[in-house]
Design a protein around this nucleic acid. Structure first.
Lengths: 150, 150
DNA sequence: GCCCGTGGTTGTATTCTGCAACCAGAACGT
DNA sequence: ACGTTCTGGTTGCAGAATACAACCACGGGC
């Protein structure tokens, strides 16, 4: 790899980190009602209907106790529901409630608005290309060293 | 804004968020000796030699008290130095120590390796363009080009 | 029926964080 | 010069997120 690419990687590395930092810091401020993790968990539940706490823990590299507590909070707030699995009594299948769906949509909308503002003035071509780069990056070249279980 | 751009924004939103939570989950695991925030702060110090705690706070959307404490830790560990500003006695200019530079290089190297693996196979052109998009995004809300130090 | 693996919860300690109160130096107006 | 306000920074405090370990409940082999 030549040095131009190295510099680019260094930059990508730094900027992505910076972004992560800001996203985390802002998540709590902009949406006090839904932490970044809760948001991610809800989002996960939205996609595939029904999943286990253990799945979430593994997917987000979180301890199962953490997920357990987060889910407990979300349940107490009426955003998710648990359903005992008929097959296996140990398992609790998690699902979004209607309220959870609404909340997710609301927060999602606000976040999207923030992004939109930040991306105002970009040409469509740049937006599309940027999006594709991010997708490509997150998809990972395969095993993805930067993301063991994802 | 047309729908093509909207889709792109949606994607950018999702992918960046995805990245953020993974980075967060990973930070503590990969580099127990340097939290994500500490790493970011050190990195920031490396670029422009000398900056104030307030600058860091603003840049990373952190409370100044948080930065104060983080910096205190980094100082105690001998990674950064404070220097009273001659102009303004209130100001403490922060700088990396040699040890700090070494530590940063070490962790940076490990992180870069992870990124590199993930970015393996990208053309230099794509890397450079991706990097510039990220910089542009992080620089702020399209503040007509050269937005200074944020 | 017993033991072990798996899904989840709870106890405990740590870390990070923000807010508010505070201190010290600078900037400004009178 | 003096007081007021502003700015950079620290500290007290409280809350949230997290990991780790111990634990409970169920399921599956033996």
């Amino acid at each position: 790899m030549n040095s131009g690419a190295d510099v680019a990687i260094e930059t990508i590395h730094r900027e992505m980190t910076s972004f992560a930092r800001r996203a985390r810091a802002l998540a709590g401020r902009l949406h006090p009602e839904l932490s970044l993790v809760s948001f991610a968990l809800l989002g996960h539940l939205e996609e595939g209907s029904g999943c286990r706490a253990t799945d979430l823990a593994e997917h987000y590299a979180l301890d199962k106790s953490t997920v357990s507590r987060q889910v407990a909070v979300l349940e107490r707030e009426g955003l998710v529901e648990r359903r005992q699995d008929a097959e296996d009594q140990r398992v609790q299948v998690l699902q979004l409630t209607e309220e959870g769906r609404r909340m997710l949509a609301r927060v999602s909308e606000r976040r999207r608005a923030a992004f939109k503002e930040r991306l105002d003035g970009w040409s469509q071509e740049d937006l599309v290309r940027f999006a594709s780069y991010l997708e490509r990056y997150n998809a990972g070249p395969s095993a993805g060293a930067a993301s063991p279980e994802d």
